[in-house]
Amino acid sequence: MIATPRDRPPSRRPLRSWLSDWATAWNAFWFTVVDPLPLAVIRFGTGVLLAWSSLVWLLDADAFFGPRGWLAPGDVWRMNDQPWQWSWFFAAADPTAVRVLGGLSVCAAVLLAIGLATPLAALVSLLALVSAANRAPLNTFGLDDTLGMLLIGLVVGPSGARLSIDARLFGAGGGGGAVGTRANVALRLIQVHLCVIYFFSGCGKLFGASWWEGTAIWGAAANVQYRTLDLTWLAAHPLAVNAITLATLFWEVAYAALVWPRLTRPLFLAMAVAVHLGIGLTMGMMEFGLAMIVANLAFVPAAVWRRLLTHRPVTAPTFLRTDLA
């Protein structure tokens, strides 16, 4: 006699059902076919920012990557985890080689932005960014962390399947193979990674008294080394400083939880744009701010991009109806 699910002990059925629910949810989260349009938008933004960053590396290439630069090759281990943090600049013994590798980085980033030979461009761009950041750890900051995170998603997914020269030349499959679940995996990786970034950044701030006191934003505004826009008039408005500080702290700590529900997502994305544009305009880190905004675009549904690209207005229902085909 064959046992049926009804014959099993009742205590085992809930566990099986629970595990089955987990497997179903996991599959739906990661392995669903989606429109790669958001990934293409992210590719364009990342490519432009990376091309600019690569050009700026080249402006002082000997100082960043040369044997007598800010950090001698033999001292790099003092600042990062050797031998794992490899770099192709370790093999560049003369200024010409440094510039050739730097030029290769610029070319790859430009190709990525326009979507030509996209899979190869994305891979070379990632290798170039890793090489630059691992060779010059004295000169890196959040911009490099963010671009690296985005490039991994662009390597994984078919980022050239839309809005690219590849797509025009070879059709939707030309920019990274057949469109399948890879776009979803790539977008999910960026989304989850972004939540990890905000979670740890927010938790780190919870150690600081100035964030609890609501004065941390003043510390950023009064720092002359960062300042590109004078916000010292905030000194006369301490409650406004408190409000901005506490809103920033709440947004960052809660982001990983509240960016997912459709009801709160637009609010958290709008706050992300405000915070990162604010950092870019007032603290002179526009590239970092824009890179974080590009990363947040992973949460903007394809329907919104389709409407924007066809010059149709984006309504609230369009933005909120993110789980529909």
Binding site: S201, G204, K205, F207, A209, S210, W211, A216
Partner: peptide
């Protein structure tokens, strides 16, 4: 990822 933490 400890941007501007614990205090600016």
């Amino acid at each position: 990822y400890r941007f501007f933490a614990p205090n600016p």
